[in-house]
Design a protein around this nucleic acid. Structure first.
Lengths: 202, 202
DNA sequence: ATGGACGATGAATACTTATTCATATACTCT
DNA sequence: AGAGTATATGAATAAGTATTCATCGTCCAT
């Protein structure tokens, strides 16, 4: 009824929201939205079922926040990895590597993003459209500096990037035991994209 | 209230399974597995709830059969479209076009395939691994005939194809009103893949 | 006619699960 | 110590839904 304090206590005050989000991530990474019950999340977080509603309005609200926080983490990890790099080759290589690394180190985290399509379709679109805008901006820059064929539509290229990352990540970071995308797989992906997007005359 | 007998589907014995599968496809294309109830499927198919279990063991069994039949349909449509074509350019162009056409003409059908990941994960993997094997075989052939860089791993290329088809199809065949992938989008996709997979010396 | 096979029916069952609420605990300030 | 506040508890509630079952129609071979 009374919503919890607007801003979580600044320190590491074992915020109930954080606790629940962490517990939920672990569970949603393995099981579907439907089969992960509020009771299970609370058990995993070490609290009673009713406490859930002191921190979240509903199971759905927690899921939305979880997806948004994953989005932030992935974007930040890629931005940090890319750092000051500016050449297309470096940016692409470091970006893909960071993306695959998140998928490997937080197993199943991307499964959650995928399931968002069925839990909250507009959230799912929001997620990918935001990422696509960022990629398209990058592509446009490379077109201006002559590193990408200017005849290509940046949005199409962005969706191609995402599709490749999604499927290759799913296959090698999630479907295999090693749970990390091997270097030679990344190398082949880079090779195809490097040649595929280059200006024709090169 | 209901006509005397269930209307015999033209040309076939009025198989309850077919009726239910068709009704279910329409519903699953729009709503999630959870929110499509057995009662709704039966209402859509024009039969009473209990009748469902005369034709299927469970809601889950119907879903599995639906995904398998979509898989067959997609593969057949692509095979028919490709026909006798043998050049890489024709095979790719016709294959992608056929795939996007299925997504456009049976709106939401691919949503069902995607949701399979959460309803029955092994079914989902089975689906994509089967398709990947087919694509990889094709890629290997093109490598032998010198139309694809022989240094690339066919399985990696297959997953890249699938990722691109998946995301581009989702964005242009499902997220837009027109609900069909425009020719210039297909052209850009083809351009990138054609160059990206070609042998380096070309 | 008639028996019975094959479906069809839809109310009843059995179970699951999100959410609420009356109550308890812990901690802070005076 | 006592009042006040924030958070925790977990049993009870309410709603939803897959599946079952006793019963009913329709058709066809005898």
């Amino acid at each position: 009824m009374t919503p919890p304090t607007e801003r979580p206590t600044p320190g590491q005050d074992a915020d109930g929201r954080e606790l629940l989000l962490t517990a939920a991530e672990r569970l949603f990474a393995e099981e579907s939205y439907t089969s992960v019950t509020v009771a299970k999340i609370c058990a995993q977080a070490g609290m009673a079922t009713g406490t859930f509603y002191a921190w979240f309005e509903s199971k759905h609200e927690l899921f939305v926040e979880l997806v948004r926080s994953i989005n932030r983490d992935v974007r930040r990890a890629m931005a940090v990895a890319i750092g000051e790099a500016t050449s297309r080759n470096d940016v692409e290589r470091l970006g893909f590597r960071a993306f695959f690394e998140v998928m490997s180190h937080r197993p199943g985290v991307y499964r959650i993003v995928r399931e968002a399509e069925f839990v909250d379709p507009s959230l799912f679109r929001e997620y990918y459209e935001q990422i696509a805008r960022g990629y398209a901006r990058g592509v446009r820059g490379f077109q201006q500096s002559g590193q990408v064929d200017p005849a290509l539509d940046p949005e199409i290229v962005a969706f191609m990037y995402m599709g490749v990352g999604y499927f290759v990540g799913m296959r090698w970071a999630e479907w295999t035991q090693g749970r990390s995308v091997p270097d030679d797989v990344q190398a082949d992906v880079m090779k195809v994209l490097t040649r595929g997007l280059a200006r024709p005359e090169d």
